[in-house]
Design a protein around this nucleic acid. Sequence first.
DNA 1: CAGTGGTCTAGACCACCAA
DNA 2: TGGTGGTCTAGACCACTGC
Lengths: 258, 258
Amino acid sequence: MPSSIPSTAESVPAADPATPAFSPLYQQIKGLILQSLQAGEWKPGESIPSEMELAARFRVSQGTVRKAIDELAAENLVVRRQGKGTFVATHAEQHVRYRFLKLVPDTGEREEGRAERAVLECRRVRASADVARTLQLRTGDSVVQVRRVLSFGGVPTILEDIWLPGNAFKGLTAEQMAGHQGPTYALFELAFGVRMVRAEEKIRAVAADGPQAALLALTPGAPLLSVERLSYTYNDVPMELRRGLYRTDSHHYRNDLS
Amino acid sequence: MPSSIPSTAESVPAADPATPAFSPLYQQIKGLILQSLQAGEWKPGESIPSEMELAARFRVSQGTVRKAIDELAAENLVVRRQGKGTFVATHAEQHVRYRFLKLVPDTGEREEGRAERAVLECRRVRASADVARTLQLRTGDSVVQVRRVLSFGGVPTILEDIWLPGNAFKGLTAEQMAGHQGPTYALFELAFGVRMVRAEEKIRAVAADGPQAALLALTPGAPLLSVERLSYTYNDVPMELRRGLYRTDSHHYRNDLS
DNA sequence: CAGTGGTCTAGACCACCAA
DNA sequence: TGGTGGTCTAGACCACTGC
């Protein structure tokens, strides 16, 4: 019964001696599984080893592995399927079509067909000060900027700008952005190995300016939902900044509080 | 080792014979604890019996009670405190000042002082068709309607209308709404025994009309965040409808996705 | 049928808190 | 010091999936 798990670089000396830095075993196991996830030992959609195998590998009981996986599942990093195994979460082939998009039609809430994507722009630019700061880059670093319009049932509904770190997204083209199947985050996984794991959104109400109104088939001054989304990969590394403008005349942003 | 827990009215014959209606023990325990919470056996802020006591009461192991409480804690119905006990969640004395309000100042995110409440209206009215439907009442049923403005640092920021079922909120006065300490949901707990447990929000961008603009010190047509919140007590019973208009010039609605 | 995750138990020990 | 929640174990059995 090991009281700690050997690791490549586990020692994190706490600067504050008052914090004993006690970490339960299952948290250490969770960290190790996280490292494997991050390193790509198991690809999105694949199954990870069974609880018994992991328990044997880490020399702990199945219950301890179980609790580690419980937390990973609660964070949507992994999906359990009884009788089959535990699988690495993916934005593709997920019953929920759009994991991060909370805009739903006022009527039905059903999928009234897929979104039509129109890519207006996709180019490599130098990061402005605020984009660089948000993505934890340096001002002037290379970023890929995408501008696109999403339409539902022929109605242009979302106008958004996307900024991605240039290093991680070398070679992203407008054709890819327009032509791929499924969610854009699935493309990021398949083509660039970047998995978005969580996101933070800041929402405001704004008035459409002239160009924005034109792209969304509205009159200037019309109210729009401004949604700024910062998406993170593993280890809280920000990997995408999105600034979207949502029409909310026949859709709304749905949020559950608890 | 009982395979089922006796209850007052447990039999729920599944209409669909294909669903075996299998329910694990810990779910049954969770349901029983939920009933006690609902019945007010333990008041908000009080501690519930220890895991060992509950295990003895229900004739199951501590681990089973533990898993039941785990879920209740995950749903914010109960709060665990190591070394002290498990406590019924309350909107009062909660570190998070406003549990359901996701509007935060752009700078700091700190509490820049309390919100100032101005109650414009508080009266008993007959429910309109849509309010009645949303609150699962009949059109014309008695409801209490409150209109108020919340200001932060002297700036009117939120204008909201609140509808409450008349039966449960008999005797609610404007003085109570204006004068109480802490969150309004804490007042509802203390004065009416109604605990809001979860909520759903529908968010849109709208333009302020004349009267709205005047109350929020804006010019007509200014963009506002429209937030419709439906709050529920136990058993998914809706108990409050709120329609709020948020100024988002120096605040934003913050949401975390995972 | 074997293998997976899911449930349940019983007991040991640890970390935290209050008196 | 005793009581509480938190961790960890080992083993048994159940429910679901696929061969």
